[in-house]
Amino acid sequence: MTNELVDFTLVSVALLGIGIYGLAVKRNFIRMLFAVEIIINAANLNIVAFGRYLSHAAGESLALFSIAIAAAEVGVGLSLIIVAYRMYQNVDIADFRSLKG
């Protein structure tokens, strides 16, 4: 292994930062979903990197669980988007104004 663990973690931190930026700035729901996906992937990268450097199988198992759960979550999220789109013809969260807050 020519790469060090900290390199991977730094990439992961960068992705986390980008994800947080996206969540903070973007008002489009699909973009925000992208941002969440990026954060989850950053975490997965972290997990697998740690698992590799600890020579554990547990890390990869956790990553597999996380990937599968992310898939389920995205499915639900996208169906919610479709429902919202049918109602508003729009997916900008800033335009959803029926509830205050």
Partner: peptide, 18 residues
């Protein structure tokens, strides 16, 4: 959105603790 964010954050925490 907040739930997904929370689970992402939890995974990140788990990754660190692991």
């Amino acid at each position: 959105l907040f739930g997904a964010l929370s689970s992402a954050v939890i995974v990140y925490g788990i990754s660190l603790s692991y």
